[in-house]
Write a protein that binds this DNA or RNA. Structure first.
Length: 374
RNA sequence: GGGUAGGUGGUCGAGUGGUUAAUGGCACCAGACUGUAAAUCUGGCCGCGAGAGCGUACGAUGGUUCGAAUCCAUCCCUGCCCA
């Protein structure tokens, strides 16, 4: 059987060890390291698929939990699958609903069988299990599916994290057994274990024995300090197979993306660029700017002098501020376009610098300019 | 000219004798946001002060009262109705 997802390593940065590669999927190749915009409800909020292509999105995310609730996976299947439903012909990755176990807080109850959610839409009770998540993800038909896991909050005790991680591993096995379309969709396992090294090692070891076509690190970037994040990232990534994609879930900010690449990560996703866009903030080569602020009222320059996106080619900070202040949809759209392009441009540079064995220098330059180093 | 309803902080609008520097909404000023319960949330928003605090303030002036945005008198202004 030919696996749906394969990884090809092209080069390793001699300066940092970062990987430059390609992920082959049923909907085309993905150049890595890659940043994946998030489109929870079968749409990257405010952006058309054409615009996503224009900002160089190679692959986008969508969410099992949300589409399960509405419009329902049966409907998406009837539409011909998620690709056809939303008119996106490049790769898609679906998250399993595992993150909602974390983010819905009081609205869920976890058992060995699965998770009972109280729908955030109408309060009705819904149930997701590894089997149900696979049924939904199979119906959605994404190129990459994530196993159903539990993302532990930070901080969590060793005992709780251990139990949770072991259950996530059992769930991963059940996911694998329930996954019906292995030739069309690759199922990734998610390494958990919180902020405990031995638990991460155990999780990685057990999941690797299940032989998934790719692996993710889950449960970091959940509010911990950056040192903690880096610590877990740097001891967990080397545990992951070299011949398969490595995905760091839920990251992130420009510095985290660079750190992830250096650690040997191939894929990252984050809601940040689109969320802060809706809240009036732009990522720029000189740091983030809250363009909604009064300072930009009469600033007739572009968001980022170094950016080549549609927004920066055509509009000023003053105009975008005006749109944001007046609640005009276009402000959100222009900022979303810019922020995603900023991150895909960043990853373009990261890939080039890996090929040039120069990612370490690039990181230092970037940090200085962005303002991470004063 | 007569009658009537009103004049509150940037704005709209509560409050009708004391815990009122004065509820709310909006506007404004900031901050947060990392596998999206998020076009959301949090804080600030009379002046001076780091702060305790001090000073001004509910159309104007005068009065009643221990105490007034709230009661009384006169005046000014606005809406509506009648002539």
């Amino acid at each position: 059987m030919k696996p749906a997802i394969t990884y090809e390593l092209l080069h390793e940065c001699k300066q940092t060890g970062a990987r430059r590669g390609v992920i082959h999927t049923p909907h085309g190749d993905i150049q890595t390291p890659v940043f994946m915009p998030v489109g929870t409800q079968a749409t990257v909020k405010s952006m058309t698929p054409e615009e996503l292509k224009e900002v160089n999105a190679q692959i986008i995310l969508s969410n099992t939990y949300h589409l399960f609730l509405r419009p329902g996976h049966d409907l998406v299947k009837e539409a011909g699958g998620l690709h056809q439903f939303m008119n996106w012909d490049r790769p898609i990755l679906t998250d399993s609903g595992g993150f909602q176990v974390f983010s819905l807080g009081q609205l869920r109850k976890i058992s060995e069988e699965g998770v009972e959610f109280q729908s955030h839409l109408d309060g009705s009770k819904k149930f997701l299990s590894p089997e149900k998540a696979m049924e939904v993800e199979n119906a959605l038909g994404a190129d990459i599916m994530m196993a159903f896991d539990e993302c532990c909050p930070y901080p969590s005790t060793y005992e709780y994290t251990k139990k949770s991680m072991e259950r996530t591993t059992r769930w991963a096995k059940r996911c694998k057994d329930a996954h019906k379309r292995q030739e069309e969709q690759g199922l990734f396992g998610i390494i958990q274990g919180g902020f405990y090294k031995d638990l991460r090692e155990k999780s990685a070891e057990d999941l690797i024995s299940l032989d998934f076509p790719g692996y993710a690190i889950g449960g970091i970037s959940v509010g911990e300090p950056k040192e903690k994040f880096l610590e877990v990232l740097n001891y967990t990534t080397p545990l992951m197979p070299k011949d398969k994609p490595r995905y760091l879930m839920g990251v992130g900010t420009p510095d985290y993306l660079i750190e992830a690449a250096i650690a040997g990560i191939d894929m990252c996703d984050c809601v940040l660029p689109t969320r802060i866009a809706r809240h009036g903030t732009a990522l720029t080569s000189q740091g983030k700017i809250v363009v909604r602020n009064a300072t930009y009222e009469r600033d007739f320059t572009k968001l980022d002098p170094e950016c080549d996106c549609y927004t920066c080619k055509n509009y000023t900070r003053a105009y975008i501020r005006h749109l944001v202040k007046t609640n005009e949809i276009l402000g959100i759209r222009l900022l979303s376009i810019h922020n995603i392009k900023f991150l895909t441009n960043l990853m373009d540079k990261v890939r080039i610098e890996i090929e040039n064995d120069n990612l370490g220098n690039f990181k230092n330059d970037f940090y200085r300019k962005y303002g991470y180093i004063k």
